[in-house]
Design a binder for these strands. Sequence first.
RNA 1: GGUCCUAUCGUCUAAUGGCUCAGGACAUGUCCCUUUCACGGACAAAAUACGGGUUCGAUUCCCGUUGGGACUACCA
Length: 474
Amino acid sequence: MFNFFRKNKVRVRIAPSPTGYLHIGTARTALFNLLFAKKMGGKFILRIEDTDLERSEKRFEEDIIQSLKWLGLDWDEGPYRQSERLDIYEKYLIKLLKDKKAYYCKCRKEDLEKERELQTKLGEPLKYSGKCADQNISPDQASLIRFKINAAQVVFKDLIRGEINFDSALIGDIAIAKNLRTPLYNFAVVIDDYEMKISHVIRGEDHIANTPKQILLQQALGFPEPKYAHLPLILDPDRSKMSKRFSATSIQEYREQGYLPEALVNFMALLGWHPSDDKEKMDIDEITIKFEIDRIQKGGAVFDVKKLDWLNSEYLRGEDNAILLKSIKELYGKELGGLNDEVLFKMLTVGKARISKLRDFLDLKASFDLLEYSLDLLIWKDTDKKIILENLKKSREILRTVLNTKFNKEDLEKELMPMADTRGRGAVLWPLRAALSGKDKSPGPFELMDVLGKDETLKRIELAIQKLEFGGKN
RNA sequence: GGUCCUAUCGUCUAAUGGCUCAGGACAUGUCCCUUUCACGGACAAAAUACGGGUUCGAUUCCCGUUGGGACUACCA
């Protein structure tokens, strides 16, 4: 029994190609792989698929690694790079060629396009004709290496979808390498998954059509077949595959927007998976415990940023303000102006309930700026202007006597509320708040005063009084 | 066009043949709290795509239709 588990150790991988920043879909695939590995006591491997020399870039690889780490999706092995494993691929390429299971092909791109055009016209499936197959084309006149696909039914059991059936007669001989030192995706994956002893291939639904090709390759090479699980896609609101055109797709962008990694992980887990109970806010440990691969959904899931915002604000509220402020400064330091930590901290304390992501803090900060406002704003409902003025003057009087050290929310409330209660809360507090914020919507007057400090508070009240006294004339 | 996947409230989903006039969450609306907004609380509206089977009984199983999606590269 022990041996059985040893031999069948669960090993899964995430295999992003560094042709762009870490995509939210890739991150979610990574998460599900990690969850599965943890659940099964297996290993999670990171493999960078950088066989496409033209499009792969080091900065993308760095972003992938950084973003994965930021999300807390750590891997047990790797990162491996396909570009560093060329000898391995070459070995198998030679074997396939020697066994006549692969051949050199000299077809030019233009020829293939013409072929496809014709097939389209005839309504035939688009596949390579295989005309170079038995021509013994020499390597120096070839443009690529193809793997021979023999007509057969390919069946595999998908852990999420059940049995999936393909007729390989519809698949043309696939390109597996440009040359001995330049492997192509479908081939490199098969070799690596075998060499890395991958037990379960958990990846996006967009790879379903690649699976029969890879299985045929495995068979030709005598490799065991891993188990497959194809995850539903993450969709844009129009139900097409999530793309830049519609929404932010890179983890980096979400980080920059001020989403917390815990919230993002929680949200991604809920895209296509759900626990058996109704609890939705869960940290990754709880998710790991509850995770079951057969609870994964088959249909694609629309990415609803509103729900992400909600989850994020939940996590925001549970987080320590000092820590949040540190992140805010790291993220938006330059945009914060010269405000000191104490003021920023007060702003966050006061405004936390009204932000859903850290970037919103910038708006929150701006909301403390006093912009030009109209005199009408100071009037509470249909209260007489004279009473408003009187109340503001009274407030000013009280505030002037309040010591600087006592200038905080609680003490200010203690000083002013009795007056507000006798003269009418609305008629006292509304004009005060309007005078301090210059806006119809804002935090409360005591919170504003606390953030603004005594001098600024009195200055703004003074301005409102001026407005009321002279504003009527012009 | 071909192949494959898929189908429960607007969105994410629960219910794996009966316990369901279909449950939760986000969003929406109304009300309460309240000096405004936000927060919080309460309530409401909102779905099994359609048509056939199978069955005593279908959201659940099967077939078809329709819709949606993915793939169809010398990208991964």
